[in-house]
Each structure stands twice: as structure tokens, then as C-alpha cells.
């Protein structure tokens, strides 16, 4: 059990990426009622975008590292950019299909995902090659309970928890939040009450995209290699996390992300061959016991 804390740190590190990404899945599902399969690729846009933004700020490095202020600025630009990409995707690809059967939006999302992977790949300045991600956060190492913890890992985990708290507050205690909840309950009634549905949904996508952007930065800082395909597999894992926690519930996405991350790491520790399969076994068991996920409420749809 010497390595218990070490593995826990690795699990929290992986889990925080899943959690941040799952928040976006869950918000879009909760409010628009569609599964945005392109969400994982927003993470890639965030990470690859940060690579280029950091390159643009390269001149401001001191001793090979970026000053805190510049790092903050880079993250802010990347988040805004990813947020706008997400809003753009919604406006172009999803909005015209909003009142069509759900299956159509689902297939469109798969198409958008493929487009977001292959379009940057075709651009000559991005291309298919993996790139080394610049060091944004401090690489200092701390010792806690005998486990090696890097500052990057702490930043990631703390960031995930803070972001979830802010999001939870925004959705439950602000005006935009109550508009979101209203749209989520009944689009038509909300519209009759004077809520601008398009605006609310755009904001939802913007927040989801910005979160994906920051999880991209976190992921690429922990595993410093970016390429255009990095989002698809992570997107799947985060989707699983969101379902595990109860899709549509913000706390559930967080919980699901950390459970999946920690479970995968500990399962890998027991047997490295089956590590990642275990995540899915847990999913099946939880869904058998609680079909709506850990935090989800089972809603019976009336036809």
C-alpha cells in the first residue's frame, strides 16, 4: 500500500481532465437535450490553440518559463477562442436542426467531430504531426505522504473543483442560470416567458467550450504532446464519466470524472492489461443499479 497516495494523485490528475470535459457534456445535455459528440474535439482545439498562442508569446519568456501573468493571458485567450468555436459550431451545425428528431442532431455531432479532427489536419501549419506542448505551469515537485506531486497536478485538481463550484453557483443562483434551467425544463414555455432561447443556448455552448479549452490545457500540461486526434478518445471517456455521474447533473459529471479516473488508475495498478476495461465494467454495474447515473433523476418521458 506504499503507493496508494501516489496512485490516488495519478487518478485525480486523470479524473480532473475527465471531469472538466464531462461538465461540458452534461451542461449541453441538460439544457439542450442533445449529446454533443464533438465536445472532445473542443479540448483538442483548446490544446492545439494554446500551442500556437504560447508560440506567439514566446518572446516574453523569462529563463524558459512564462511569467504567471502571461500564462493567465494565454489561458484566457485559449478559453475564449474555444468558447467561440463551440458557439459557432452550435450556430452553424446544431441550431438549424434543433426542432428535428434527436437522432439527426446526434449524427450531425458525429460529423462535426470528424470535421474538427480532419480540417486542422489538412491545414498545412497544423498538420497531423504530434507536437511538444510548451511548459506553462511550474514543474516543481512536492512530497506529500511519500507521494511525488507536481505543481501542475495540484493546479489541475484544484482548477477542476473550483470550476465546478463556479458553474454550480452560476446555474443555480444567477439570472442566466435560472434562464438555463427554464430552457432545460420547457423550451417553448421559456420562450413565451420572454427568454431568448438562442442566447441561452449560445452561452451554454460558450461555457462548455471554454471548459473544454481549459481541460485541454490541463491535459496537455500533464502529458505534453498535442495532435489533432487527441480529443476523440478523451471525449469518449468523459462522455462515460458524464453518464456515470448522471448526465445533466453538474455535480454528477464531476463525481463521474473522478471516479472513472481513479478507477482506471487503480485497475491499471492491479493489472495493466485490463486497466481501461475496468472503467466500463464500473459503468455497466452502476447503470444496472442506478439507470440514471449516480446523481441523475430518472425522468420518464411521456409520449
Amino acid at each position: 500500500m506504499n503507493y496508494f497516495f501516489q496512485y490516488l494523485v495519478y487518478g485525480l490528475q486523470l479524473g480532473s481532465v475527465y471531469a472538466l470535459l464531462a461538465l461540458g457534456y452534461t451542461m449541453v445535455y441538460g439544457i439542450v437535450g442533445m449529446i454533443n459528440f464533438a465536445h472532445g474535439d473542443f479540448l483538442m482545439i483548446g490544446a492545439v490553440g494554446t500551442y500556437f498562442i504560447a508560440k506567439a508569446f514566446e518572446g516574453m519568456r523569462i529563463d524558459g518559463t512564462y511569467p504567471m501573468l502571461i500564462v493567465g493571458l494565454i489561458i484566457l485567450i485559449a478559453m475564449t477562442m474555444t468558447g467561440f468555436v463551440a458557439t459557432g459550431v452550435e450556430a452553424i451545425a446544431y441550431r438549424p436542426l434543433r426542432n428535428k428528431p434527436r437522432m439527426i442532431a446526434l449524427i450531425t455531432a458525429v460529423g462535426v467531430s470528424m470535421f474538427l479532427e480532419n480540417f486542422p489536419r489538412a491545414l498545412p501549419f497544423i498538420g497531423p504531426n504530434p507536437r511538444s506542448f510548451p511548459t506553462l505551469f511550474s514543474t516543481n515537485v512536492l512530497k506529500i505522504f511519500g507521494a511525488t506531486v507536481t505543481v501542475t497536478q495540484i493546479i489541475m485538481i484544484v482548477l477542476a473543483v473550483i470550476t465546478m463550484s463556479i458553474l454550480y453557483y452560476v446555474v443555480n443562483h444567477t439570472k442566466v442560470g435560472s434562464q438555463m434551467r427554464a430552457v432545460s425544463m420547457d423550451k417553448d414555455a421559456a420562450s413565451l416567458m420572454g427568454i431568448n432561447i438562442n442566447r441561452v443556448i449560445s452561452i451554454t455552448f460558450f461555457i462548455g467550450g471554454a471548459l473544454a479549452g481549459i481541460s485541454g490545457i490541463c491535459y496537455a500540461s500533464a502529458y505534453p504532446q498535442v495532435d489533432v486526434y487527441m480529443g476523440s478518445w478523451l471525449g469518449n471517456m468523459s462522455f462515460v464519466s458524464a453518464v456515470l455521474g448522471g448526465i445533466g447533473d453538474i455535480r454528477g459529471a464531476m463525481l463521474g470524472g473522478f471516479i472513472l479516473g481513479i478507477a482506471q488508475i487503480f485497475a491499471t495498478a492491479l493489472n495493466s492489461t485490463f486497466g481501461y476495461a475496468v472503467g466500463f465494467i464500473i459503468l455497466i454495474i452502476i447503470l444496472l443499479v442506478r439507470p440514471a447515473g449516480l446523481m441523475g433523476k430518472l425522468v420518464i418521458e411521456k409520449v
Binding site: Y3, Y10, I265, T268, S272, Y276
Partner: peptide, 17 residues
């Protein structure tokens, strides 16, 4: 120690072992 496929980027557990 093994890992399954190129999608995996986290080798920390295997390497720690």
C-alpha cells in the same frame, strides 16, 4: 508491465511499479 494501445498517454502507474 503492459498498456493497451496508442490512445493511452498515462503510463505513471506502470512506471511507478
Amino acid at each position: 508491465e503492459e498498456y493497451s494501445g496508442s490512445d493511452i498517454k498515462d503510463y505513471n502507474v506502470q512506471l511507478t511499479k
